[in-house]
């Protein structure tokens, strides 16, 4: 929640006269979910006087929420992290694990975790995380195929065990012949990453 609040405040700082209503809405939401009613009330008081967010703000005001709003907030609170970790925002893995521990159905946290591994080119960690939090998806399948080929395990049985269609393997072969034709694939991203890393080493 702190990271969400931080990015809302940063956006507010960047908005004209530092008063963007959309960011105040975000701040109000964050504080309502966190149970910080005093801070939420401050933002809602400001929004209550605006044309487009006034009705919403009045409906969200602590003490004046209806049953549906209260259960919506309760549902959001149920997914919050229950263990305190002091972290720097550039290393989110432990935070994402904690989020998924609190709510394994948190699809956004799952996507962030898997994509964080992919962006770090860390396929070993990706395979560990994917085993715990599997999520079908083209990019993930492409990453799995790289890992399988790196470990000489590119057999039809292994490929299908991950729910990957064998036609994806053919596509990977075509990528090998013409990488520039497949710029929207993880293979292309990975290849470029490795190329840059090799250049830096030299």
């Amino acid at each position: 929640m702190t990271v969400a609040e931080q990015s809302a405040i940063t956006s507010l700082q960047a908005s004209p006269k530092h008063t963007g209503a959309r960011f105040l809405v975000r701040l109000a939401r964050v504080n309502l979910v966190s149970g910080e009613d005093g801070a939420a009330q401050k933002y809602l008081n400001l929004l209550a006087k605006t044309l487009f967010y006034g009705k919403w703000a009045r409906s969200m005001m602590p003490g004046q929420q209806d049953e549906a709003t209260r259960s919506q907030l309760e549902a959001a609170r149920a997914g919050l992290i229950r263990t305190d970790i002091v972290h720097q925002s550039d290393s989110p893995r432990h935070v994402l694990y904690a989020l998924l521990e609190a709510n394994p159905d948190n699809q956004v946290a799952r996507e962030y975790l898997l994509c964080f591994d992919l962006m770090c080119y860390d396929l070993e960690q990706f395979m560990v995380d994917y085993a715990r939090y599997p999520r079908p998806g083209r990019l993930y399948h492409e990453a799995i195929l790289i890992w399988l080929s790196q470990h000489d395990r590119m057999t039809p049985n292994n490929v299908t065990s991950y729910g990957i269609d064998l036609s994806t393997v053919d596509r990977m072969n075509r990528f090998g012949r013409n990488p520039d034709g497949y710029k929207n694939t993880y293979w292309y991203y990975y290849l470029n990453g490795m190329y840059e890393a090799a250049k830096e080493e030299q």
């Binding site: 702190t2 990271v3 931080q6 149970g35 263990t83 972290h87 925002s89």
Partner: peptide
């Protein structure tokens, strides 16, 4: 000086 975040709701910065 190093700034960090807490993960618990209601706790903010450290």
């Amino acid at each position: 000086i190093l700034p960090s975040f807490h993960t618990m709701a209601g706790k903010r910065m450290e």
